[in-house]
C-alpha cells in the first residue's frame, strides 16, 4: 500500500512538473485520436444521415451490418490494417506502417461504424418529426440531410464523444500498426501497458490519471452543453 502511495506521488510529480516525455505521449495520443475522430465524422455522419433518410433495396441489411461493425474486435482491425500497410500489402508502397498515420487509419476503421450508427439513429428519429414539414417547405430528401445534421448537432456530439472514447482508449490495433516506438508512436494506452509490464508504475499511473481526467472532462463538457441546450429547447430528445 505504501508502494502504491509512493508511485502515485511520483505520478503526480510527473504530471505537475510537466515531464517532457509524458506530455509528448499525451499530445501524440490526442493528435492521433482527434484526427481519427474528425476523419471518421466526415465519413460517418453523411453516411449515417444517408442511411436514415435514404430508401434503397438492402438498406435494412446495411444498417444491421453497420451496427454489427460497432463491435469490431480491435486486434482484428489491427491485423487487417497491418496486412494492408505491410511492405507486401496493397498499400505497402506508402510506407505508413509504424507511423502515427497507421494508428490514425486503424482508429478511423474502428470509430467510423460507431459514428455512422449513432448518426443514423439520431437523424432517423429527427427525420420522423421533420420529414413532412421539410417536404412542405420544398426541401427534398437529399437536401434535408444538412438541416437534419445541424438540428441534431447536440445529439451528434454524443456520437463524437463515443467515437473519441473508443479511439483514445484503444490499445490492440494501435500497438499492432504503430509498434509502440519511443518518441514516434508511443501513446498513452500502449505506454501504460508497456510501463506496467516493466514495473514503472509511476509513469503508467500518471498516464492513467490523465486518460481518466480527459474522459471525464470531455463527457462533462458535452453533458453541460446538452443540459444548457435542453433549457433553451434546442436539444433533440
Amino acid at each position: 500500500m505504501q508502494n502504491f502511495a509512493e508511485e502515485l506521488r511520483h505520478a503526480m510529480v510527473l504530471i505537475l512538473s510537466g515531464d517532457r516525455d509524458l506530455w509528448e505521449i499525451v499530445l501524440l495520443s490526442l493528435r492521433v485520436s482527434v484526427i481519427a475522430v474528425l476523419i471518421a465524422a466526415l465519413l460517418g455522419m453523411p453516411l449515417g444521415a444517408a442511411l436514415a433518410v435514404g430508401r434503397f433495396p438492402g438498406r435494412r441489411g446495411v444498417i444491421i451490418l453497420v451496427n454489427a461493425l460497432m463491435g469490431l474486435p480491435p486486434v482484428v482491425v489491427g491485423l487487417l490494417v497491418y496486412l494492408c500497410l505491410s511492405r507486401s500489402g496493397p498499400l505497402g508502397v506508402l510506407q505508413l506502417l509504424y507511423t502515427p498515420s497507421a494508428m490514425i487509419i486503424a482508429q478511423v476503421v474502428l470509430v467510423t461504424p460507431i459514428i455512422t450508427a449513432l448518426t443514423r439513429q439520431t437523424v432517423e428519429t429527427l427525420n420522423a418529426e421533420y420529414a413532412e414539414q421539410l417536404r412542405s417547405l420544398g426541401v427534398s430528401r437529399l437536401a434535408s440531410v444538412p438541416t437534419l445534421l445541424w438540428d441534431g448537432r447536440l445529439s451528434l456530439l454524443t456520437a463524437l464523444l463515443a467515437g473519441f472514447g473508443r479511439a483514445i482508449a484503444e490499445v490492440g490495433a494501435v500497438i499492432m500498426v504503430g509498434g509502440n516506438i519511443n518518441h514516434v508512436t508511443r501513446v498513452m494506452t500502449t505506454t501504460i501497458a508497456l510501463e506496467t509490464s516493466k514495473g514503472n508504475l509511476a509513469l503508467a499511473l500518471a498516464l492513467g490519471v490523465i486518460l481518466i481526467a480527459l474522459a471525464v472532462s470531455m463527457t462533462a463538457c458535452v453533458s453541460l452543453l446538452i443540459q444548457r441546450s435542453d433549457v433553451e429547447g434546442l436539444h433533440h430528445a
Binding site: E129, Y130, E132, S136, L137, G152, L234
Partner: peptide
C-alpha cells in the same frame, strides 16, 4: 404547382434554432 403551396400542421414542427 406545389411550390406555390404551404402547409401548417396540427402540432407545429419548428427547427431547433
Amino acid at each position: 404547382d406545389r411550390q406555390h403551396q404551404a402547409m401548417v400542421f396540427q402540432r407545429p414542427v419548428l427547427l431547433r434554432r
